[in-house]
Simulated assay, not measured.
Amino acid sequence: MTAFAQRVAELVGVGKEHLERLAGGDLSEVLLFRRPDGRCTVAKGGPGVSTEAAMLRLLASIGVPTAPVEGEHQDVLLLERVENDGVFSPKAWASIGEALRQLHEHLGEGFGWPVDYALGSVALDNRETPSWPRFWAERRLIATASVLDRPWRERVERVAAMLDDLLPAKPPAALLHGDLWTGNILVAGGRLAALIDPACYHGHAEVDLAMLTLFDTPGDSFWESYGSLEPGWEVRRSAYQLFPALVHLRLFGASYAGMVDRLLAELGT
């Protein structure tokens, strides 16, 4: 039994035989346990428990399906298990598009978030910045590339220098999921069941769409449900996809070097 499993067992008062490690959980340990009344609870570990709980509660408050928070205890977050079937049918994609549009219509006053966060070992500097291109350049691209080898850093810095001409200065500050791919989208019965594992902040809505299309291929019903995009979205998409690609390069190594190189080349560096 891991130290986290021992902590969860003691916290909820169950024996270790009632704990089951869930698939996934690349960035933190995730366990499932069944309560005596039959309910299933997911336990997640990590230093950002209170921040994630606040994000989940915010999503729920604006009507976006997510995993209900059952409790938070220092380094343990307890969530109600959301049943899902993993079938991304056209109806499910339409439901996802509708919910994402609803999320993005919830606007903030600036770009950023009240507290910093992290994706695994990759810190997210969420300090508010009045210029969206500067936020993306400094808080996301340059900061994420700062620990990479010099050739990577220099290419990313050249991209950052061109963002004032590529990105809108002040797009609507949409509420973003921040880590949107199908692994963080639960579906059941042809509908969205929950968005999970958020890394929220306010920014250009295209950020979520770019990440979703980097790792997945939403169906036509998704785009019809989400609605029209601003002209030039395809050009900006590479700049937005570069950030999650850099995160994956840092977290999971050289297997993502080709992706980063491709995106940098598309951006002319």
Rank of each mutant, 00 (worst) to 15 (best):
A92P: 10
A92M: 13
W93I: 00
G97P: 03
L100W: 07
L100F: 08
L100V: 08
R101I: 01
R101V: 00
L103I: 12
H104N: 02
H106M: 11
L107G: 01
G108S: 04
E109M: 05
F111C: 06
G112D: 00
P114H: 13
V115F: 01
D116K: 05
D116T: 08
L119K: 05
G120H: 07
S121T: 15
L124S: 08
N126W: 06
R127C: 11
P133F: 03
F135L: 11
W136E: 01
R140N: 04
R140H: 12
L141I: 11
A143N: 10
A145C: 12
A145M: 11
V147W: 11
D149C: 13
R150M: 09
W152V: 13
R153A: 09
E154R: 14
A160Q: 02
A160S: 11
A161D: 15
A161T: 09
L163K: 06
L163V: 04
D165P: 03
D165K: 13
L167Q: 06
P168M: 08
P172I: 10
P172W: 08
A174Q: 01
L175V: 01
L176R: 02
L176F: 11
L176S: 02
L176D: 01
H177N: 03
H177T: 08
G178W: 07
G178E: 07
D179M: 04
W181I: 03
T182D: 05
T182G: 01
G183F: 03
V187E: 03
A188F: 14
A188H: 15
G189L: 11
G189N: 12
G190A: 10
G190L: 13
R191E: 14
L195K: 10
A199G: 10
C200G: 03
Y201S: 10
G203P: 03
G203H: 09
A205V: 00
E206D: 07
E206H: 00
D208V: 00
D208K: 04
D208Q: 02
L209D: 04
T213D: 10
L214S: 05
L214R: 02
D216Q: 11
D216F: 03
T217I: 12
T217E: 15
G219F: 04
D220C: 04
F222T: 09
W223A: 10
S225P: 06
S225H: 03
